[in-house]
């Protein structure tokens, strides 16, 4: 409230300093949300991101009684001049057993190009139960001009996959990563 002008000016200065600090703090908070969400998704296994390479393969009992359908989807990010498709659209698998399938990709440009496939699993909560021991998505793939190749994925479904999940979709999006086309 208005007292004398001098104390008001001081009060204004103090309040403005705090509010500017709050503004700067909230700007930083926006950026902090990124690591915060990354950690949250890692802990909870949300977001359909599969884990990295499975290094240690523990033997687990194959659950012959259960069949899960695995669907494969391939898509291209914009500005990626590739041909990209799964060799088979779907497979029936038993949890615990390893399977291998292939994706076909071809560079349609007349120059060498590097691509990176980014996997995503749906439903999101199945992602942590989708284990890959070999995948072309682990590395960047270099394609010579007009080169086409078959690229393998070796995976298994963890028998701990929740019982209500009967279909798992593995989707790859191919990104061109030389000259960082977005």
């Amino acid at each position: 409230m208005i007292a004398n002008p001098e104390t008001t000016a001081n009060a204004n200065k103090r309040l403005v300093r705090r509010l500017v600090l709050l503004t700067v703090g909230m700007f930083a908070f926006g950026f902090l949300l990124i690591p915060f969400y990354d950690v949250l998704c890692k802990i909870t296994g949300l977001n359909g991101k599969t884990g990295g390479r499975v290094e240690v393969v523990e033997a687990v009992k194959v659950d012959e009684s259960r069949t899960v359908t695995v669907e494969f989807v391939a898509s291209l990010n914009i500005g990626a001049p590739w041909e990209f498709a799964p060799k088979v659209a779907r497979m029936q698998v038993h949890p615990g057993q390893f399977y291998q399938t292939h994706f076909w990709a071809k560079n349609l440009a007349d120059q060498p190009m590097t691509g990176q496939a980014i996997p995503s699993v749906s439903p999101g909560l199945a992602a942590s139960h989708f284990q890959k021991i070999e995948c072309f998505c682990f590395n960047r793939q270099l394609f010579q001009a007009n080169e086409g190749k078959e690229m393998p994925v070796t995976f298994r479904i963890d028998p701990n996959l929740p019982a209500d999940v009967r279909t798992v979709t593995l989707s790859y999006t191919f990104f061109r990563i030389d000259n960082a086309g977005s």
């Binding site: 509010l19 709050l22 503004t23 700067v24 703090g25 909230m26 700007f27 930083a28 908070f29 926006g30 950026f31 949300l33």
Partner: peptide, 11 residues
Amino acid sequence: LIAVMPVLAGS
């Protein structure tokens, strides 16, 4: 406004 406009600016 002070709480969220900076977040928009960040994004």
